[in-house]
Design a protein around this nucleic acid. Structure first.
Lengths: 223, 223
DNA sequence: TAGATTGTTAATCGATTAACAATC
DNA sequence: TAGATTGTTAATCGATTAACAATC
């Protein structure tokens, strides 16, 4: 619909690349902590666990931030990637479902250090209201809309049981949340334009189990 | 090296398909709970959140378990997928790092119901030893090798801080673990033949942040 | 200049999807 | 038989990778 201004950095970073940018960002942070000020694509690729061709291709979608014959300035590249992802600012996040997992998420230190700020913890269970987790009050789920509006929350985290998740997602979307990280083991239906990413422990384990079984079969056939 | 016996079910299920099989399995379980005994690829695809072409293509790698003009028998297909993944048996799992997240994982009920059994919880911190979490004793990390050998553990879960994770992975691999689910925010180096899957909260949030930012930019340009 | 390393090209590989023949 | 739905084909799309020209 809108003609893309050629002045702004080329959009249309492939999804696979977007998913790796945070990995590069972390690898760069580690290199910086170790006192490294310059690195080659080979160095950074090794730290990120990818091959250097892929790394250079990924970075090429953002711009030309390296120097031929020299490599990349760690701090500079770090800033450019952070800017591309959008974590030079802080994102307010709301967590719904303060059970075991919700507790762990609320206490997760990586939140704050990586560009996110937990502005509210919500739970449907009255008995939890008023309780403090990681210095934040647990409040009624019905406060969702007010909190989202007040803090301009765009990202919601769902750590409720599966049967509550769809309703929570619906309420989040209705309140203005456009991106959801779902830990509940269920498929969420959301309108187009809303992004959902899911983290599912038992799915991950089942994928691993498949490979264990396959390796065992391969051995049985070889032996 | 070994000629594949043509009698056994065709191996070489694409990785993308393997990652979806557990999703289908869960959707089938939901359908079964609702009393559905037969479903079309359209029904199952909707429940799994994929399109039906993809579903049928995925299932075709396992065999021909449907009936043209009719659909799939829910229980039968469920068993066939469970068998393919390898979750008709129970897999012993060890969790290392019993902090907030480790607690949540140990208490996770989906473990048992989905083909996994937590046989040990290990932590380097003496103060936690003897503590019980979800009915399982927390034991010293040095017990790892004995436990892996005794129970034939192939799958290990790492929920330690980042700086401990590589050492834990090394010790797991040395003990005989061939598949690792890593919750620590660090890239693990493992020998070939060992599978690692990682779950990383801050990476997931950053991917969402990127999309929120992109949507905001698109709106700004349109408006 | 010579050596090093980026950014890009082009070939390859794997995944998705629509369409439809096979068949219940 | 007619209608429904699978399993498969083939076209398309997106991701990966090696190779190398550009250039510091």
């Amino acid at each position: 619909m809108t003609a893309r201004s050629s002045a702004e950095s080329a959009r249309d970073v492939p999804e696979a690349t977007v998913a790796r940018l945070p990995v590069y960002l972390r690898a760069l942070a580690t290199l910086a902590d170790e006192g490294t000020s310059t690195c080659s694509s080979e160095d950074l690729a090794a730290a990120a666990g990818v091959n250097s061709s892929k790394l250079r291709k990924d970075l090429s979608y953002l711009g030309s931030y390296g120097t031929r014959g020299v490599g990349y300035d760690v701090d500079y590249l770090r800033y450019q990637i952070a800017r591309e992802i959008g974590v030079t600012q802080d994102w307010p996040v709301v967590i719904v479902g303060i059970g075991n997992l919700g507790h762990a998420l609320a206490n997760f230190s990586g939140f704050r250090s990586r560009g996110f700020r937990v502005v509210a913890l919500l739970d449907a269970d009255r008995d939890r209201h008023g309780e403090q987790v990681a210095g934040v009050d647990v409040r009624p789920f019905s406060d969702l809309e007010q909190i989202v509006t007040e803090h301009g929350v765009a990202i919601g985290v769902i750590s409720t049981p599966a049967q509550a998740a769809q309703d929570v997602a619906d309420r989040m979307v209705a309140s203005g949340v456009t991106s959801i990280l779902n830990f509940a083991p269920t498929v969420l239906q959301v309108p187009s334009g809303v992004d959902v990413r899911k983290v599912d422990l038992s799915i991950e384990l089942q994928i691993l189990a498949y490979h264990v079984q396959r390796k065992a079969q391969a051995e049985a056939e070889a032996g």
